[in-house]
Amino acid sequence: MTEQNDNLETLMRRSLAGDQRAYAALLHETTRLLRPFLAKRMSIASEVDDLMQEILLSIHKARHTYDGNRPYRPWVYAIARFRLQDHLRVHYSDQLRHALDFDELEEYLLDPVTESLMSYESISGEVDKLPEKQAMILRFLHQDGYTAREVAEKTGMTESAVKVAAHRAYKVLRKKLER
């Protein structure tokens, strides 16, 4: 029987005994097994790969908790689900951290985004260090003099999204300049 034809339980038993080829085959099979499971739950392909790597590391770390006498799939899916939940928790808490307060947002959407007390040229160095999208919006607004609506049309974003992105950029810049 070749390694490819071996079932996962056998491969894992041989891996636990120190068979490195069986272990590599098992991890490849596991990757094939888990990819659709993760892809169904995550939209960005690069994130699937990142998470897959975390899962493989976790399998490696926890392999002593598998004895080879019970089905392999429930064991590996338990680890995959655990890492997926962890990943999603971090992802959503990150989004929440970057979310704006609704009151703050409402107040802000009424403000003109192109008015500034400081000249754009004096802070253009800091603007370049911002994430690409934010930097581009500030350049359109302050260097080229477009309105938020015009920037929205140029970038394919909504006007509110442009204002929000600009607001976030201002917050970052304010923090940097206050230091």
Partner: peptide, 8 residues
């Protein structure tokens, strides 16, 4: 990981 896998 496979290279690192000793008997466990």
């Amino acid at each position: 990981l496979a290279q690192d896998a000793a008997a466990v």
